[in-house]
Design a protein around this nucleic acid. Structure first.
Lengths: 245, 245
DNA sequence: CCCGGCAGACTAACCAGTCGGTATGTGGTC
DNA sequence: GACCACATACCGACTGGTTAGTCTGCCGGG
């Protein structure tokens, strides 16, 4: 198992404080900064930029994120070692810790990404110009489709959220809450205008629907008898039917 | 942190093969055997039996299982060390590995227990002598109540199932499937007799309902505005309303 | 006197994160 | 247009700490 350990670097007098600008905590911000600068990558590339991209042309941070997402979903957060992630991404630990402050930061970024996406889409559907039934139905079906498109993220989301440190967990919960409340507002709007039944509190209806959405990753398999759109339509129908007065 | 480490046992000549009856694999069966012999414990106890019971009078295997359940739910399977479990149960590793073959066996037993319980209750409600609407409603509400009564088990179930080895995972899935199918049969019966809508495949309806049930541990907090019975009634109502023709 | 029930020191493996180091690029300066 | 200063991007051996599971041995009852 433990191969030969060549001892080569032993003497090293010129140590002490050299450059070393960002010694401790600003590390976890590096990826965020990077992401802001080159957000939608791969699109507006200027050819000369070949740095940090291997074969596929995807920048290292994205590759790391993709590898981590897949591995976290397959084996769980705790069972995935940093070593596995960097190997899957074709780099080394040095690269990972260059862009991310910790393994946990990687997990948080996975959450942040999927939350941003879903919030955007929900807002678009919810603020559309259409009758409330239509808006709710479209939003409910859309979240199913995008969840199926990112089943890995969904699996990670509901299985590994509790692995986040208290502060990060709180932050994710907060964003999650915003999403929940926007959805609930749709139902309450329909209840006020008499389109939906008021028999069940809107909060509970939201949890009912999203419970099933989160569990898609448990039972839905691409290539099964139902397409994602069919599943989405059915689940949206169930929700709407449950809300009929 | 690391206290003094007294080195006392150093000399130890008389080693070699002693008793050692069940050296390798039959280990994981010990608990099962134990459980069968003293199943409903604490009830028909003959007073003289004080072995292995501390203060509270609960036998060691049960105490271990209870401690493991709580800790797995609180921190997750991987983040709970067997050291923590045995300390919470007031014993040592020797005791744990005397009754259980591995940490994983502990997890599996948690599953097996909750599955047995829920299957029993479902069968009772499903085979009752009542109209199908009533039977489905009662079964749907009951699973909510018992899930709330064992929120820890539910949390472990949907967060840690993938930590089981493939074989054990398959076994749990199989039992889970039986449960699912009994529930689905109820819905199909109602669909055949025209009491329920056939717009949505029964399979999907089951997943819809159980998705929300599994996620109770995410949002339900005892002491909240709704009692477990109220939540159960609402969720059962939602299901029945979604099934109206 | 033997055996189930249990104690607790010990081991072998693993793993997140660190740190000194190299390679490549970029901007300023004479 | 060669030279220097400095920064970014990344490499990979190493450290300190943790952990599941083992093993020897003690103890009390039948």
């Amino acid at each position: 198992m433990t191969g030969p350990v060549p001892v080569e670097i032993l003497a090293d007098p010129p140590r002490a404080a050299s450059g070393k600008i960002l010694g401790r905590e600003p590390r976890s911000l590096r990826w965020t900064a990077y992401a802001r600068k080159s957000m939608d990558s791969t699109r507006g590339q200027v050819a000369t930029v070949a740095k940090g991209m291997e074969g596929d042309g995807t920048p290292v941070p994205q590759r790391l994120l993709a590898a981590a997402t897949r591995l976290f979903a397959e084996q769980g957060y705790d069972r995935t070692s940093v070593q596995e992630i960097v190997e899957a991404a074709g780099v080394t630990k040095g690269a990972l810790y260059h862009y991310f402050g910790s393994k946990e930061d990687l997990l948080q970024e996975v959450y942040a990404r999927v939350l941003r996406l879903q919030q955007e889409r929900l807002d678009a559907y919810a603020n559309a110009d259409a009758p409330i039934e239509r808006r709710l139905r479209d939003a409910a079906a859309d979240v199913v489709v995008t969840t199926i498109d990112n089943l890995d993220d969904a699996a990670i989301f509901f299985r590994s959220m509790h692995h986040l440190s208290p502060e990060k967990n709180k932050q994710v919960r907060l964003e999650r809450r915003r999403y929940h409340e926007r959805f609930r507002a749709l139902i309450e709007e329909g209840q006020r205008t008499g389109v939906f039944s008021t028999a069940t509190p809107a909060d509970l209806v939201v949890d009912y629907h999203f419970g099933s959405v989160h569990h898609l990753s448990t039972w839905y398999r691409p290539g099964g008898p139902l397409s994602r759109q069919e599943v989405a339509d059915h689940l949206a129908d169930l929700l709407l039917r449950a809300l009929r007065p």
